[in-house]
Write a protein that binds this DNA or RNA. Structure first.
Lengths: 343, 343
DNA sequence: CCCATCTAGGACATGACCTGACCTAGATGA
DNA sequence: TCATCTAGGTCAGGTCATGTCCTAGATGGG
């Protein structure tokens, strides 16, 4: 079950194994644990309350069909993943690295960096293979941020390591930089590195999508204090994350109960007729995501707001129409909603 | 740094802490580790090669600026996440639970179940809050599968626990079931539970989106052998995952180097002119995803195939056009690609 | 209703193990 | 060359972990 250790006599190793076993969601009788770890049941009981001392609450149900089970406590216990689970998390995080959920972007990248640091080589292959099987959701402006770059930068930030990289300015000129990375922040859907530029002898913020060939020099540094300047205000603004909320107003051509079943529980449309309902809510999604999600709902709808969404959808609709306009291979199907005939 | 343990005298606890420290991607001098864990440097050195014995390779760079660093080995070490990282992973996995990357769906759900089992309560709130801030990407057919249901079912499968739930058949009739869950499989974008139905005394496959109020009874059972019947062939088919590959053929109205920068590295379009290129490849994405991703590329393009994509895009384009048709709030912008004027 | 089966935990003896102190060797960069 | 780091051997002392045997309490099935 993941984690096979030869040296079973070692106490710490046994504790890790025990933790690993208890992490599969099921009940474990003490006798079975004792057998698996080849120690006496008494030792298992001692190990169990050793784990409890460490802050990992092991729940025990008494009686004839009792057993032990690890439950949620106050501290986060070490996660013991098997190969497949590790791959699944890595793939998931990489897929989400570009457009992570608002509010956990930095943490998400940190977690990915941590995982990839220790991910065995054989699993690394599987991750990249799986990732290549799908087309990533790139942003329209071509601001490509690779997970590899993000994790590399994140590593230098937490490791206080100097970083060398090439930077492509807005006008296309490429410069070499040597910096002391301070923090990685994401605003909206774009990533920035706040760092002290050793060549310029000042603080700078770099757009991560313009960074090429990041190379940690290995040299450690003691982090400087961030002065109240450009970078500082920038950081503060990004931390506040006031941006991003959108006033969504959509009318659906379907009964409210039909629509509510396709929305998260906190979004409740109000019925405006037997076959109509309207949703008005503030959501943290970007205009692009909203457009996609609405499009995927397979319900006719009308967008009242925000304006940006209307504009974006009109644009999108036109682009899609153009993409299939010159095509004679597939006829208009029964699903087609509007009376536009192929040219 | 996450994991604060009061009892520092305990050797296993110290080893876990050491592992935790080494998991932040940076170099740690032995002296600093000794100070942090309040033991002598000699003990640190002993602990380090204890970790090495356990299969977690700790790399050491010698010399004046040397230090220790945990690198990738053959075994997956226990992941020691801080609060934010744990939340980020949970949110990411939940977001991906419905439409996970092909090939890691089951593992993804297992990992989520494992994490949620031990996730502290305070973090649980943050996860649900963050998740509610976004609209999930629901499929058009309204087959809603909640992460909660999936993790509950996954738990009963790995825990060999009997499960009670309500099942809504295709004709809308609701029945109560008591089953011994065998496996959770996903085909395409739909989830199934293969289980032995104790009431029917036979094997059944249940669509997870039709399962309501899953309740693990707590009673353990010894897994039965799956006979070669309906369920078995079903399992085999789902494991083979031959489905899903699509013959994509798109022509872009942009230079090849422009397009290649917005595609994963294994997808290479061929230039068909100075400002045109064509991409022909087999990809594992669904037609819906392909449509969205192409739409987000912000490049004019023409879809040659597959037919299903053409049909879907025409449908989508019409629906989007209808959604913004009756809207006078936003005018045609400079971004609009085709000469469609607002009605 | 009682008994089997499980968790919980105290007492104790033995031996293993862990720690810190002190030492030398080797690598590395300023 | 020297300071600074990892690497690792040895040794003495005491701690700690283990298995065995014990009793108590909870629980579900026969």
């Amino acid at each position: 079950m993941g984690l096979i250790l030869e040296n079973m006599t070692d106490t710490p190793a046994r504790l890790l194994n025990l933790l690993s076993l208890l992490q599969t969601p099921r009940e474990w009788p003490g006798s079975e644990l004792a057998e698996r770890l080849s120690v006496s049941p008494r030792t298992i009981r001692r190990d169990i309350d050793r784990l409890r001392d460490l802050g990992y609450p092991v729940e025990a149900t008494m009686g004839a069909v009792g057993g032990y089970r690890l439950v949620a406590g106050t501290a986060m216990p070490p996660l013991l993943l098997d190969d497949e689970e590790a791959v699944a998390i890595a793939v998931g995080l990489r897929a989400g690295a570009g457009h992570a959920i608002e509010g956990v972007e930095e943490a998400s990248v940190r977690a990915l960096a941590k995982l990839e640091q220790v991910l065995p080589a054989r699993l690394r292959h599987r991750v990249s293979t799986l990732q290549n099987a799908t087309i990533p959701l790139t942003r329209g402006d071509g601001a490509t941020v690779t997970p590899a770059t993000l994790t590399a930068l994140a590593g230098t930030v937490t490791g206080h390591e100097r970083l060398r990289f090439g930077y492509r300015a807005g006008d296309g000129t490429e410069t070499k930089r040597l910096v002391e990375p301070y923090r990685l922040v994401s605003t909206g859907r774009r990533w920035y590195l706040v760092a002290y530029d050793l060549g310029r002898e000042d603080w700078r913020t770099f757009r991560v999508d313009r960074v090429s060939e990041p190379f940690p020099t290995g040299a450690r540094f003691t982090p400087r204090e961030l002065p109240s300047g450009d970078a500082a205000t920038y950081m503060a603004r990004s931390m506040a994350r006031t941006q991003g909320e959108v006033d969504l107003d959509v009318e659906f051509a379907a009964p409210a109960e039909f629509v509510v079943a396709r929305l998260p529980s906190h979004l409740v449309p109000v019925a405006t007729g037997p076959d109509r309902c309207r949703l008005h809510a503030r959501v943290a999604d970007s205009v692009e995501w909203l457009a996609l999600r609405l499009a995927l709902m397979d319900v006719d709808f009308t967008v009242r707001g925000p304006d940006a969404l209307v504009t974006y959808m009109r644009d999108l609709s036109g682009r899609l129409a153009a993409a299939v306009a010159g095509n004679r291979s597939a006829g208009t199907t029964a699903h087609t909603r509007v009376g536009r005939r192929p040219l």
